[in-house]
Simulated scan of single mutants.
Amino acid sequence: MNATKSAVGFGWIPYSGFQLRKTGVQFDAVRFDGDEGRRLALMMEAVTGGEPGPVVAEASGKRSVYFLVPAGSTEGKAWPDGAVVLNAAPGRVSYVPVPALHGRTWPVSWYFPPTAPGRFVHALLLLSTATAILN
């Protein structure tokens, strides 16, 4: 591991560019596409006082927004329409694009970067917020 990753404490974040990370290891993810995802990200920022946890956004294609939640926290929940759950449930393999903290990462970037090792988006708060504004 290089010094930059060690200093930051996020071994799952690439040093440059972006890489796909398997869900269910460090985190699960919930994806919302387009304007709904961006609206949900802004609402999560508001309800958490500006620190919703790590959220990744894509600038091309479906313009997906990925909310990184603790591994195992997505299973058994009734997510609203439009949510795509990415986890390591039996018989399932999912990957999420993760950008570097700095430099060129287009078309993937941090909507909200991680603030501390082990701190992710609160899954139940995301679920209740998504249900409230997307249904």
Rank of each mutant, 00 (worst) to 15 (best):
K77W: 09
R39V: 08
A78H: 13
S60G: 09
E36S: 10
L40H: 01
G72C: 04
S73F: 06
M44Q: 14
A46S: 07
D35Q: 11
P80Q: 11
A71C: 10
G50Q: 08
G76W: 04
V56A: 12
K77L: 15
A46P: 00
D81K: 15
G37V: 01
E75A: 13
Y66L: 10
A71I: 12
G37Q: 00
V30G: 01
E36P: 00
D35E: 10
S73W: 01
D28G: 12
L40E: 00
G34V: 05
K62F: 09
S73I: 07
P54R: 06
S73K: 10
V30N: 00
G61V: 05
V65W: 03
V65I: 15
F67A: 04
M44H: 11
E45T: 11
P54E: 12
G49L: 05
G53I: 08
G50P: 11
S73R: 12
G34L: 04
L40A: 03
G72F: 03
V47E: 07
S64A: 15
A29V: 06
F67E: 02
K62C: 08
G49Y: 04
G50F: 10
P70F: 15
D35I: 07
T74L: 03
G34T: 02
E58M: 12
M43N: 14
V56E: 11
V69C: 03
G50W: 08
M44S: 09
D35F: 04
K62D: 15
D81F: 07
M44W: 14
S64Y: 00
A46E: 07
L40N: 01
R39N: 07
V65M: 14
L42T: 06
P80T: 08
P54Q: 12
R38M: 03
S64L: 00
E45Y: 14
S73G: 03
D33G: 10
A78S: 15
D28S: 13
K77C: 13
A59N: 06
